[in-house]
């Protein structure tokens, strides 16, 4: 088998990896905002749930979370008579998104808190509601602060997708393993794997940079 024949199956795997990364990063982003804001809530119930989620998913490994969702959840569901079997893609996206969301929530919380207190005071003096203050004044200023960390988390997330090959999802790593088992051509396969992940990470970095510039475009006007 010539090495160029590896490319098609690898590309198929890469496509799965891309989808996993995109979906789980979006899910993680949404969760990050929901629970990052939730952690700052004055409502104790919301705050507790947010802290609970963040600590649970940061305090356990992604692998365990993935196995739990894929292997343990269906059994738990069976015990109470509900079908909780998840397709591998769903389990993968959920585990990755929940995991990255917990780290992202801390980034969101930190960025929101870093907005200067005098902005909140100005908003209060103008009689904005707390909700308007958060969404119109504080968060737009916090987003550019979050973006570098979000960029790192997105790259981290891309690399973490390799773990889903362990629940037989045909991602890039899984396909590479398949070909390697068949051809024993470890050097070529792993080199290609390395390059492909690196290429994808570059794309993720560039995309996050563009989002960062867009979110903070007011900072660059006229300078």
């Amino acid at each position: 088998m010539h090495w160029s024949e590896y490319l098609l199956p690898l590309a198929e795997g890469a496509w799965v990896t891309v989808q996993l990364t995109v979906y789980s990063t979006i899910l993680g982003g949404v969760l990050a905002f929901v629970f990052g804001i939730g952690k700052l809530s004055s409502n104790m119930a919301i705050k507790s749930v947010s802290v609970g989620y963040i600590e649970l998913f940061r305090g356990t490994s992604l692998l365990v979370q993935l196995f739990w969702l894929y292997f343990a959840l269906p059994l738990a569901g069976m015990a109470i008579g509900i079908d909780l079997r998840l397709p591998p893609v769903v389990a993968g996206v959920l585990a990755l998104g929940l995991n990255i969301g917990a780290y992202g929530a801390e980034v969101v919380r930190g960025a929101i808190q870093s907005v200067h207190q005098n902005q909140r005071e100005a908003a209060r003096a103008l009689n904005f509601t707390p909700r308007q203050t958060l969404f119109n004044i504080v968060i737009p200023q916090a987003i550019p602060e979050m973006m570098p960390s979000f960029g790192n988390l997105a790259v981290q997330n891309l690399k973490d997708t390799a773990l889903v090959s362990l629940i037989s999802l045909g991602d890039l790593t899984f396909r590479a393993e398949q070909i390697r088992n068949f051809t024993q051509d470890s050097t070529t396969i792993y080199t290609l794997l390395l390059l492909m992940y690196f290429g994808m990470a570059l794309v993720v970095t560039v995309v996050m940079h563009l989002i960062e510039r867009f979110a903070g475009r007011w900072r660059m006007v006229g300078s």
């Binding site: 005098n118 902005q119 005071e121 100005a122 003096a125 103008l126 004044i137 007011w218 900072r219």
Partner: peptide, 14 residues
């Protein structure tokens, strides 16, 4: 009431 602040406190993103 309205207030004018020492540090202006304008909204920088607007």
């Amino acid at each position: 009431l309205g207030m004018v602040f020492q540090q202006f406190n304008l909204f920088p993103h607007m």
